[in-house]
Simulated assay, not measured.
Amino acid sequence: MVDMAKQSASTKLSSDASEIRAAVFRLSRRLKQQRAVSDMTDGQFAVLVALKVHGPHTLSALAEREGITAPSMNRTVNCLEELGHLSRTENGDDRRKVDIQITESGRRVVEETARRRDEWLSKVLADLSPEDRQTLRSAAAIIMREVER
């Protein structure tokens, strides 16, 4: 009897996980569609956000932060640099290193994209009841707590 209860609870958790994953994935896709620059990849945008939030990085530190190889990051950085969204400057402490930093153009892309995404989500939330919005705020707090552990 105990094994059946454990199996039932495990099945329920698995089902819950699938439902939550699917909902978060669909929401993420819809939010990603709200961009300031339509031809920018998610990876390129993530680099701009990292530089805006965390400040200048070396190429290797940026690659590590984003979980990709240094050659892949170099291609991303080259593209963003050509577009004027970031720049490279000599590191003040070690002249062998180069710091990558976001430019004003890159900052505008991040801010406009965030604005568009917030605007889209605000329209969705406006159609919900206060109770549903509170439920989503609570869920957001739980998700943030768990992903930051």
Score class of each variant (00 low, 15 high):
M1E: 06
V2N: 00
V2Q: 00
D3P: 00
S8K: 06
K12D: 05
S14M: 10
S18A: 15
E19F: 05
E19A: 12
I20F: 11
A22E: 13
A22N: 12
A23L: 10
A23M: 08
F25T: 11
R26S: 08
R29A: 06
Q33M: 12
Q33V: 02
S38T: 14
D42H: 11
G43E: 13
A46T: 12
A46Q: 09
V47E: 04
L48R: 06
L48T: 03
A50G: 11
L51A: 10
L51S: 04
V53A: 05
P56Y: 00
T58R: 07
L59K: 05
S60G: 02
S60F: 02
A61G: 14
G67H: 06
A70V: 15
T76V: 15
T76K: 13
N91S: 15
N91I: 08
N91T: 12
D99P: 03
I100L: 12
E104D: 13
R107F: 04
E111A: 10
R115G: 07
R117Y: 09
D118L: 12
E119M: 11
W120E: 05
W120M: 09
W120R: 01
L121N: 06
L121T: 08
S122Q: 12
L125Q: 09
A126Q: 13
D127T: 08
S129Q: 06
P130D: 00
E131N: 08
R137H: 12
A141T: 07
I143M: 15
R149G: 11
R149I: 13
